[in-house]
C-alpha cells in the first residue's frame, strides 16, 4: 500500500475512514447479493400472482388461482390445524422409513465392504434393485402390505435404503489404505481398524448417502400417498383435486415444496457438519 510513505497522521485518518465505510458497504453488498439470488423466486411468485388476475380468462383462472388466494387458503389450513395433521402424517412416515434405512443400511454396507466376498456376491443383485425405481414397485408393496402405514413406511425404507447402503460401501471401500497401515502400526487390531479408521473415514460419504436418502424418502412418500392413503400431504393434493378444492390443492403443493427444501437444507447442513475435516 502507498500508505507506507505517508506521515503517521494521514495513515491514521485513512484507516479511520476505511473502518467507517466498510461495514455499511459490506451490508449493502450482502443485501444486494441476497436480493439477486432470490430474484428468480420473487419473479416466479409475481408471475403466479399477476398472470391469473390479468392474463388468464376467468374460466382458466379457476385452475390457477393467484398466489394470495393460495396463501389465504394455506393460512386457514394452518389455523385449523388441518395442515399440521397432514404434515405430521407425512413426516412421521418418512422419518420412520428413513431412520430404519439408515439403521439397516449403514451396518449392512460396512459388512459388505469389509467382506469382499459378500460384496462380490451381493453386488449384481444390489445393482438390479438400485436401478429399479421405487415407485415401480409400489403396486407390489400395496398388494403385499395393503394401503396402510406399513406399505408407506416400507416403500420409503426401500427408496432410502439404497443410497445409504451404496454410499456406505463406497465410503468404506475408498478409505485411504495408508490410514489403515498407520492404524496397524499404532497397535489397532482388525476390529479397531474397522471402528476407529474405516468407519470415521467413511462418514462424509455415508452422510452424502444419508442426504440423498432423506430427499428421496420425502419424494417417494408423497407419490405413494397420492396413490392410496387416508392422510398426508400427497393424499391432501389428490383429494383436494378430486373435490375441486383448487386453492387447497395448491396450498398442499406449496407445503410439499417448502418441506422438501427444508429437509434438504437440514441434511446438507448435517452432511457438512460431519465432513468438516474432509474439506482440506
Amino acid at each position: 500500500m502507498s500508505t507506507l510513505v505517508l506521515p503517521d497522521q494521514q495513515v491514521r485518518v485513512e484507516n479511520t475512514t476505511v473502518r467507517h465505510v466498510r461495514p455499511t458497504r459490506r451490508l449493502g453488498a450482502s443485501l444486494r447479493k441476497t436480493l439477486y439470488r432470490s430474484g428468480a423466486i420473487i419473479g416466479f411468485l409475481l408471475v403466479w400472482e399477476l398472470v391469473p388476475q390479468f392474463v388468464l380468462e376467468p374460466a382458466s383462472r379457476v385452475f390457477l388461482p393467484p398466489l394470495h388466494e393460495v396463501l389465504q387458503q394455506l393460512w386457514k389450513m394452518i389455523i385449523s390445524g388441518d395442515l399440521g395433521t397432514h404434515i405430521v402424517a407425512s413426516l412421521g412416515r418418512s422419518a420412520i422409513g428413513f431412520i430404519l434405512a439408515v439403521i439397516i443400511g449403514v451396518p449392512v454396507g460396512l459388512v459388505v465392504a469389509w467382506f469382499a466376498k459378500v460384496g462380490d456376491f451381493l453386488n449384481p443383485l444390489l445393482e438390479v434393485f438400485r436401478n429399479t425405481a421405487a415407485l415401480a414397485l409400489l403396486p407390489v408393496f400395496t398388494l403385499l402390505l395393503g394401503i396402510g402405514e406399513l406399505s408407506k413406511v416400507s416403500i420409503v425404507l426401500y427408496a432410502a435404503f439404497f443410497p445409504v447402503l451404496l454410499n456406505t460401501i463406497l465410503g468404506a471401500r475408498s478409505v485411504d489404505p495408508l490410514l489403515i497401515r498407520a492404524g496397524k502400526t499404532l497397535g489397532l487390531n482388525n476390529f479397531e481398524i474397522f471402528s476407529k479408521v474405516v468407519l470415521p473415514a467413511s462418514v462424509p460419504i455415508i452422510f452424502t448417502g444419508i442426504r440423498m436418502a432423506g430427499t428421496s424418502a420425502v419424494l417417494v412418500l408423497i407419490a405413494a400417498e397420492m396413490i392410496g392413503a387416508k392422510a398426508g400431504l400427497g393424499y391432501l393434493i389428490t383429494n383436494s383435486q378430486a373435490s375441486f378444492l383448487i386453492p387447497k390443492m395448491y396450498a398442499a403443493i406449496l407445503t410439499v415444496a417448502v418441506l422438501g427444501f427444508v429437509v434438504n437444507a437440514a441434511l446438507v447442513a448435517l452432511e457438512q457438519h460431519f465432513s468438516r475435516w474432509a474439506r482440506a
Binding site: 495408508l178 498407520a182 496397524k184 497397535g187 479408521v197 473415514a201 475435516w277 474432509a278
Partner: peptide, 19 residues
C-alpha cells in the same frame, strides 16, 4: 510377527487421521 507398538512408522504422506 505383524505390526507392533514397539516399531513405529512415520510415512512420507503423514498418514494422520484427518477426523
Amino acid at each position: 510377527s505383524g505390526p507392533s507398538l514397539e516399531r513405529s512408522v512415520v510415512f512420507q504422506q503423514y498418514a494422520l487421521f484427518p477426523w
